[in-house]
Design a protein around this nucleic acid. Structure first.
Length: 110
DNA sequence: ATTCTGACGTGGG
DNA sequence: CCCCACGCCAGAA
């Protein structure tokens, strides 16, 4: 039984439930899981999710709506392309109208 | 074992 | 508005 492994699993489940054309923040997921202070771990989990094609990591950004993890993707602007492909407007690694596309697990998933 | 860094967030100056 | 520091946990050197 993996003690912290469960945490990653939870992150994956939430990430999978992010609807098309919507995005969320690491802190939102972390807080939903009860580890609000460990928002970094969410990002870390995303890094591990690189092996899981079912995890739309491109839909997860920081609370500023900035594509902080775009550099971790295969290409340089792959993350932005994926988001724009879903109808999300991205400008200079920053999501425009972030509040409109923001998906809050507390409000939608809960 | 120790130290640093990291896909974050919040608070203070 | 910009810059700095702290907290948190996990993995790598």
């Amino acid at each position: 039984m993996e003690t912290s492994g469960n945490f990653f699993e939870k992150v994956y489940e939430v990430a999978k439930q992010i609807p098309f054309g919507r995005v969320t923040s690491y802190g939102a997921i972390a807080k939903y899981l009860g580890t609000a202070k460990s928002a970094r771990m969410v990002g870390w989990a995303m890094n591990a999710s690189h092996n899981n094609a079912d995890i739309p990591a491109h839909r997860v950004v920081n609370r500023n709506g900035l594509l902080t993890g775009k550099f971790h993707f295969d290409g340089t602007n792959l993350m932005q392309q994926l988001l724009e492909s879903e109808g999300i407007v991205v400008k200079e690694n920053q999501i425009q109208n972030f509040s409109a596309v923001f998906w809050d697990p507390f409000k939608e998933l809960l």
